[in-house]
Amino acid sequence: MPKIIGGSLEEHRRAVRVRVFEVLRTQLYERGFDAVTLAGIAAEAGLGRTAMYNHFPDKESLLVAFVEDEATSYVERLREAVDGVADPIGKLAMFVRLQLRVLAEYHLPPGAALASALAPAAYRRISAHADPITGQLRTILAEAAAAGRLPDEDPDILIPMITAALATRQVVDVPPEQLEQAIEGAVRFVLRAVGTSETRKRSPI
């Protein structure tokens, strides 16, 4: 019988998921989605194949579970960071920074490629996690417009344009020492694009 990690079966399952997700996160960054295999994840996480398949029957279920876990943590991180900024333009700048830093951390395929790699139901589950993030952006834009800091443009036009710009990997595919400079350039671009020339100093997060 496999050794139980923690004091209960539920703690064991969570500990295994944390271990597997840590390995997957590293492999996504180092190798990319296409090169990831369940056998490779299991070996690096110190799990037998049977134990791995008991938790994640296939690569698709692993990816969906990982994205759901990461998205939940990220949405909370995003809310805390944005709520900690009083100025609405500063909130938008913080939103852009976080989105790009997360993009730099993970090597998931872009939306179209991910859609083709997953079954429709699985892709819809992953896509659903973008809704709270989009909602946060909508709130920021509305707050800035109400304060007279941005033109009162249609958010249904602005939001897809901003999110498309922040999903472009070329922005963050730079040497590590150039990443912050690239992100700050993107912040200035988005602020100008939505109708303000204001910029904000980089805020540690």
Rank of each mutant, 00 (worst) to 15 (best):
Q170Y: 12
D34F: 11
R49Y: 04
Y106P: 04
I89P: 04
G135M: 10
Q170R: 07
A164C: 06
P176T: 09
R188N: 13
R188P: 10
P57E: 14
T50M: 11
L47R: 00
R138N: 07
G7C: 05
G135N: 08
A15E: 08
P2I: 12
D58R: 00
P175C: 13
V171I: 14
T196Y: 04
V102N: 03
L78P: 09
R31K: 06
E80L: 14
H55R: 02
A104P: 10
E44K: 05
F95N: 05
G32M: 10
L28N: 06
R101S: 09
L24G: 07
A39E: 14
D152M: 04
I41N: 01
F56N: 00
A130N: 08
A71N: 06
E22F: 03
A186Q: 12
L98F: 07
F56E: 05
Q181P: 09
F66R: 00
E60P: 14
A145Q: 04
L191E: 03
M52K: 00
V96T: 15
E177Q: 12
K3A: 15
A147K: 03
L47S: 12
A182D: 05
A15Q: 11
V194C: 04
T50K: 05
D152H: 01
Q136N: 07
H129Y: 12
A121G: 11
A144G: 07
S116K: 08
S127H: 09
A119D: 12
L179R: 01
H107G: 15
V102S: 10
P132K: 02
S61N: 09
E76H: 02
L114Y: 01
A167T: 06
P176V: 14
A112Y: 01
E68W: 00
M1G: 15
A112N: 01
V190I: 15
L141I: 14
A193F: 13
L47M: 14
E76M: 03
A164F: 06
P204F: 08
L98S: 06
G135T: 09
E10D: 14
I126C: 14
E180V: 14
L100C: 07
A186H: 08
L24S: 05
A146L: 10
I126H: 00
R188L: 15
